[in-house]
């Protein structure tokens, strides 16, 4: 009896030796900092000062009264929710075309992944500062040669935002292509053949077969990409610095400036938590929509 209990214990501890390193790691270096960060939002902590006091909800009240925090959240939501959706549509179109396996599709397939590998900081510089440069950039040069109106974005809030979204799209559409193509390739060919025999047009086949079958993967991919876009900072910091004014400033850039440059780490943590709340709200809403339009998902 004693022997079997200790053997059982030994076996369990071997099993736990597989999981525990990762679990302990995540608790110490993810869960703890997360709770720590939440705790900071109720203090007046500054980056370099040792003196810390409990201030209750003062930071949260300040957040709700701060017009800037609303602007940066709005910017972030536009980039993440709308930007990712447009990227999804373009990605789906490209994936459908690639899935036709036209001659040379392997070339397109490999090249389409290229932007995903490149550092956003490098991409932002090359596209934002060089290709779209107002003075020496090829984009305006080509527009000029074609006799079209030039694209001056530096002083326009809307055009600056558009440029940020273009760069983010350039980098991230490949992610949609990659995942959606994998999910399209998993659809058996005979379903299409049967529909073709029944006289369904290309558009009908897309609407009635392809779209419903890639919908679950679409929603998952959209959530993953949007979660990532909610974190945007590099593109903005390199290309517009958040300007003009704060019209392209993201929540992460705002929190960085507050916490590191302004040393107001307590308020920065509050802003970052507000972003987390918005992200959770977004995931909740998308899952709600998913349960409506994809019934097999409970």
């Amino acid at each position: 009896m004693m022997i079997s209990v200790s053997r059982r214990f030994k076996e369990k501890s071997v099993e736990w030796s597989f999981l525990s390193p990762a679990l302990i790691y995540i608790i110490l270096l993810f869960v703890f900092p997360l709770l720590f960060s939440l705790g900071i939002t109720f203090t007046n902590m500054r980056l370099l000062a040792a003196d810390v006091n409990f201030v209750g909800l003062a930071n949260w009240k300040r957040l709700l009264a701060d017009a800037n925090s609303f602007i940066v959240m709005k910017n972030t939501i536009i980039i993440a929710v709308l930007g990712s959706f447009v990227q999804y549509l373009i990605g789906l179109l490209l994936a459908v075309l690639l899935n036709k396996e036209l001659k040379g599709y392997k070339f397109f397939r490999v090249s389409f992944l290229l932007p995903m590998m490149m550092a956003p900081v490098a991409v932002s510089y090359v596209i934002g500062k060089m290709v779209f440069s107002e003075t020496f950039g090829p984009f305006n040069d080509i527009l000029f040669r074609l006799g079209l109106p030039l694209f001056f974005w530096g002083t326009s809030s809307i055009k600056s935002m558009l440029l940020i979204m273009i760069i983010d799209a350039w980098t991230n559409i490949p992610f949609f292509v990659l995942v959606l193509l994998a999910s399209l390739e998993a659809i058996p060919d005979d379903i299409y053949e049967a529909a073709e025999v029944d006289g369904a047009s290309e558009w009908q086949r897309f609407r009635d077969i392809t779209l419903p079958l890639v919908l679950p993967a679409s929603i998952t991919t959209y959530i993953i990409r949007a979660l990532n876009a909610f974190q945007i900072i590099d593109v903005i910091r390199v290309v517009t610095g958040g300007g003009p004014g704060n019209s392209t400033e993201s929540a992460t850039l705002f929190a960085y400036d507050l916490g590191i440059k302004g040393q107001d780490i307590a308020y920065a943590a509050t802003v970052s938590f507000a972003l987390l709340i918005i992200v959770l709200g977004f995931v909740f809403v998308v899952n709600l929509i998913r349960s409506r339009i994809v019934p097999q998902f409970e």
Binding site: L19, A22, L23, I26, L29, F30, F32, P33, L34, F36, S37, I40, L227, F230, Q231, I233, A251, T252, A255, Y256, G259, I265, A268, A269, S272, F273, L275, L276, V279, L280, V283
Partner: peptide, 24 residues
């Protein structure tokens, strides 16, 4: 639950823990 716990942690924007990480 443990698996989804790992996955859910990816939902948290890095900026939410980076400041606490700096202090740690």
């Amino acid at each position: 639950n443990i698996t989804s716990g790992f996955l859910v942690s990816r939902m948290v924007p890095p900026v939410t823990i980076v400041l606490a990480f700096l202090l740690m």
